[in-house]
Simulated assay, not measured.
Amino acid sequence: MSLISPSRRNVLAGAALLVPTATLAAPRYDAVLWRGAGENPYGAPAYPSLSAAVAAAPASGAKPFRILVTRGVWDEQVVIDKPFVHLIGEDRKASVISHLAASGLTAPDGKRWGTFRTPTLFVRASDFAASNLTIQNAFDGLAEMSKSGGLHSHDGGGPQAVALMLDKGSDRARIRDADILGYQDTLFPDAGSSLFERCLITGSYDFIFGGGRAYFQACEIRSRPRPVDPIDGYIVAPSTPIDQPFGFVFQDCRLTKAAGTKAGSVYLGRPWRPSSAFADGRYGDPRFVGMAAFLGCWMDDHIAPAGWTEMWYTGKDGNPRTMLQPEDARFSQYRATGPGAAKLSRGRWLSEAQARAMSRRNVLAWRS
């Protein structure tokens, strides 16, 4: 027998219908990286590694599968091969996806890693997103080149070490409020379109490179020193296909320097021309004509007065030091400010109309 009167019961039933929907909503995350003792407090399935969490995502997802990256260093090499995987860090500096691999080092299979096997995180599916976390390659390029017999860029020694690669299959990737850390070849947006907002990207040689379309908005691009080399580095090395109008566009970014980076020692970029196989041999593919533009960016005094420089490729005659000049690529700047922006003698200066044509919407070809 109920102890609640019919009228009282009706009032309570009505009140239940008025409970805010937020209290009845699904958990905020679909998966949680968790090493703690006992049940995690986030109301979502817990996984001991990012790879395990990605494996739980739907193979053909049509909505975000949200993975909380809790505080800690999650040391593994991960492939994102499912659409709509979204990584959300608990703490931008303390939620770290990390791995150590460099081109010239020996991998577990007994072979050298090679640049294209080094990424900490491979993205090979569409609609990936990451925010409020750090993605790094833990290879210490500065320490390596500072020691006797270490790996050096200038002698082909293999210090390339990628943190994040947007590989074939990636498109509409969104990375916000994230740190992407490395030393050489840090960020490799090589396919599809990608948006980077309020990110920190660090490195020295060619540390943003590849053939994809990438728009960088309000990011900090921080160059790191190379004490044993006369040149501290190159920010971009695009390999944009000639039939692709846009490559890397930086809007309202800050080009800063780490301590020890010399004045005038870093070029904005150089044009990378990868080789392809042809009927008459293998040589630099003329289809690749790099495109990059810096729009309204502040530049510290580490930027070289020329702004842009040449890069070698293998010529049709077999000469491995054939030079592709910046004037033969698609390099430009608009309204650069700061101590490093006074001259920039190479690269094309854009008009306001030309700069406006490189809008986020035009570069990415997204509806939003």
Rank of each mutant, 00 (worst) to 15 (best):
A292P: 00
C253K: 01
D171K: 09
S170W: 01
P225G: 05
A129R: 02
A59T: 14
Q251C: 06
G61I: 01
V249G: 03
R117T: 05
M299I: 15
W312D: 10
R270S: 09
E352H: 11
D109S: 09
A138Q: 06
M165V: 13
A125L: 03
G347E: 05
S153N: 14
H154C: 11
T322F: 02
V363S: 02
A129T: 02
W34A: 05
A125N: 03
G315S: 06
S345Y: 05
V19W: 07
A46H: 12
D301N: 13
F246L: 05
T337H: 09
Y205W: 13
P83W: 04
K257H: 14
L151Y: 07
I135H: 07
G281L: 01
A107D: 13
R330G: 00
Q160K: 15
L324S: 11
S345A: 10
D177G: 12
L24S: 09
A16H: 10
G72V: 03
A56P: 11
P48K: 15
P189R: 05
A178G: 09
R198T: 12
E327K: 14
A304G: 15
P45A: 07
A62T: 15
Q136C: 08
Y267D: 02
F250G: 00
G247C: 07
L166F: 15
P320T: 03
T134L: 03
T202M: 15
G212F: 02
R124L: 13
R112V: 02
R346K: 08
A258G: 12
G104S: 00
Y215F: 06
V249S: 00
C219P: 01
S170A: 10
S126L: 02
R346H: 04
V54F: 00
H99G: 10
A57S: 05
K262W: 09
D155N: 12
M165Y: 11
A46T: 13
S193A: 15
S49I: 07
D285Q: 01
G149D: 04
A25E: 11
F250P: 00
A178E: 06
G114A: 14
P320I: 03
A306Y: 15
A25R: 13
E327H: 14
S146K: 14
D109E: 09
E39H: 14
S170D: 06
P274W: 00
A94E: 07
L364R: 01
M358S: 04
C219L: 12
P339E: 11
